[in-house]
Design a protein around this nucleic acid. Structure first.
Length: 581
RNA sequence: GCGGCCGUGGUCUAGUCUGGUCUAGGACGUUGGCCUUCCAAGCCAACUACCCGAGUUCAAAUCCCGGCGGCCGCACCA
């Protein structure tokens, strides 16, 4: 049994996660999170919030719809780029990217060609399957976005978002205003995303519906190397596999992010900074240093919007290095596309440190002469004239004596010029975007796999304390002599104090400890006979099976300190002599 | 999507080739009871399965076909 199988077996048996719709035979690419998995996932998401939102300056979280009208994806480029033209061989059924095949066999670029035009080329040039020489079928479009209709009429086409990012870009103007127009601004979102994958595999690593956690860090491109937060983390070591190393077939290098930046292996400082945030985040999920590396995407792998993308990979049993995050430098692609397609100006104004006074030549159409001379064309002439550069107009008038505007000849009597002083207070620009993007579901699996361990034939899920779905189990040592009453009381008190706690009385004490270890409960509280004498209970540590003895009256306080990370297990109460020590 | 292998209680599995003694066996688990003073103890009882659908046959977990799902490889992969 591989580690992957063991982790999935445990997940299913204990209720972390399993394939959905099993009673109807299942449909691949979908998972259900059970009682422990749902909390585990939530805890991971909250930890992500800590690292990527709460500990960053001017970073906030929003929530936008999953279904979006097609206009959004026309602008974002997903309708065009998330769609692959596919052609299949009728004989051997091998499938090809139609555009790639045509370019290869005919040697012409088919970029932007419609499907019908590609089909025409295939027929005219009588293209055959390069593999078996069989006939080719029709070119078909395969778009990875789920399509739907919004409302009752067929006209309004909508798509399920393939990434959360577009929600942030579409709402940028208002959010920027609400956040009092400060850059850098981080806009984060955690939510469901859908991609109609051709063949989802490997359980949770390739889903059709998954939770994405993204931050769009919106910055002034001129400030992209001004990242104060970076200083604290610049010495962070990373294992980096650059595109060029991959092309040369060489292994990754270990390098500090600062050095990588100096050697221009990372495009800019903000991108470098988030690599360090990512590394620290993934470590806090319990993944060891040497199981974390960064891999730059090769030019042909990059998304249409990306200047540089560096994935974070973790090493997983059975499937090797697996992407769990991408860090993309999206430049101004998204915002400029939405500005263009929506017609809404989402540029940001930046005040200059010192306003500049510039002398500028402006032209003034002389309406008194243009009106009578051009009659009903006058309005159009004035409009066109205003678009022209004053200096250029003046030059033409002096060199050739006239200028042609909207098909009309204008002379100097039609235009007046004026020297004006203008104060330039700042500049308007389209901000750039750095995007760390995480797959929450892969993180859940990663966390489970790295927490999985075996000891004396038993499974212990060594989840980081902060992530454990259940924090505490409460047990009576045996089910008699009033021990359950005391235990139940403690259980209810802890529930009331806000701990995630369960009570377990069924089976021998060893069996109950074993059950708790399998779902990764960090602490177990056992009420025994000594409890009846001196009002103390034992606290058991999941990882070492050691126990400490604590007064019931101090329990809540001590447990709070433990789960807040302020004390370690061996600082709890006093040691217990058990037959294990 | 293609090819190979595979699909039996909650989990792991025996049985499938060679159809009938399979009202499907075991182990672990879960629940209830008894017992029990710290790491899956014991005893009793209960629970839960042949992936779905059609077909061949007197008879199908077993053979055939289709679907769904899983693993591996190829292809695809923001």
């Amino acid at each position: 049994m591989t580690l992957y199988d063991k982790v999935m077996e445990l997940s299913k048996r204990r209720g972390f996660l399993w394939p959905s719709f099993e009673i109807y035979g299942g449909t691949s690419g979908f998972v259900t999170y059970g009682p422990y998995g749902a909390i585990l996932k939530l805890n991971i998401e909250n930890m992500w919030r800590d690292f990527f939102i709460y500990k960053q300056e001017n970073f906030i979280e929003i929530e936008t719809p999953i279904i979006m009208p097609s206009a959004v994806f026309e602008a974002s480029g997903h309708l065009e780029h998330f769609t692959d033209p596919i052609i299949a061989c009728l004989k051997c059924e091998k499938r090809y990217r139609a555009d790639h095949l045509i370019e290869e066999l005919v040697g012409v670029s088919v970029e932007g060609l419609a499907i019908s035009e590609m089909n025409k080329i295939v027929k005219e040039k009588d293209l055959k399957c390069p593999d078996c020489k069989g006939d080719l079928g029709e070119v078909e479009l395969f778009n990875l976005m789920f399509k739907t209709n919004i409302g009752a009429y067929k006209g309004d086409v909508g798509y399920a978002r393939p990434e959360a990012a577009q929600g942030m870009f579409v709402e940028f103007k208002r959010i920027f205003n609400i956040m009092r127009e400060k850059l850098p601004l981080g806009i984060a979102q955690i939510g469901k995303t859908m991609r109609n994958e051709i063949s989802p595999r490997k359980g949770v690593t390739r889903l059709r519906e998954f939770t994405i956690m993204e931050v769009e860090v919106i910055l002034d491109p001129e400030e992209i190397n001004n990242c104060p937060a970076f200083e604290k983390y610049k010495d962070t070591d990373i294992m980096l596999l650059t595109a060029s190393l991959q092309q040369k077939g060489e292994p990754p290098v270990n390098i500090t992010v600062e050095r990588a930046l100096e050697e221009r292996l990372i495009d800019n400082k903000w991108l470098a900074y988030f690599l360090t945030v990512s590394k620290n985040f993934v470590k806090s999920l319990g993944v060891a240093d040497d199981k974390i590396r960064f891999r730059e995407q090769l030019p042909h792998e990059k998304a249409h919007y990306s200047k540089q993308t560096i994935d974070l990979q973790v090493y997983l049993d059975g499937q090797g290095w697996t992407e769990i995050a991408g860090h993309a430098y999206r430049t101004d692609w998204d915002l400029s596309r939405h500005i263009k397609y929506s017609g809404v100006d989402m540029r940001v104004f930046k005040k200059a440190d010192t306003p500049l006074t510039v002398r500028k030549l402006v032209l003034k159409p002389s309406k008194a002469t243009i009106g009578p001379d051009f009659q009903k064309d006058a309005a159009r002439v004035i409009e066109e004239l205003n678009k022209l550069d004053a200096a250029e107009v003046k030059r033409q008038l002096t060199t050739q004596g006239f200028i042609e505007v909207a098909g009309k000849k204008l002379t100097s009597k039609h235009i007046e010029f004026e020297e004006r002083e203008e104060v330039v207070k700042g500049k308007k620009f389209i901000p750039h975007v750095i995007e760390p993007s995480y797959g929450a579901d892969r993180l859940v699996y990663t966390t489970l796999e790295h927490a999985y361990s075996e000891k004396e034939g038993r499974i212990i899920l060594k989840l980081p304390v902060k992530l454990a779905p259940i924090q505490i189990m409460v047990y009576p040592l045996v089910e008699r002599d009033g021990l359950p009453d005391v235990a139940t009381q403690i259980y209810r008190e802890l529930l009331g104090e806000g701990f995630r706690v369960e009570y377990d009385v069924s089976g021998s004490i060893g069996r109950r400890y074993a059950r708790a270890d399998e779902i990764g409960v960090p602490l177990g509280i056992t009420v025994d006979y000594q409890t009846l004498e001196d009002k103390t209970v034992t606290v058991r540590d999941r990882d070492t099976w050691r126990q400490r003895r604590v007064f019931i009256s101090e329990l809540v306080n001590i447990l709070k300190q433990f789960f807040e990370g302020r004390i370690y297990f061996n600082q709890i109460g006093s040691p217990v002599d058990t037959n294990l020590e």
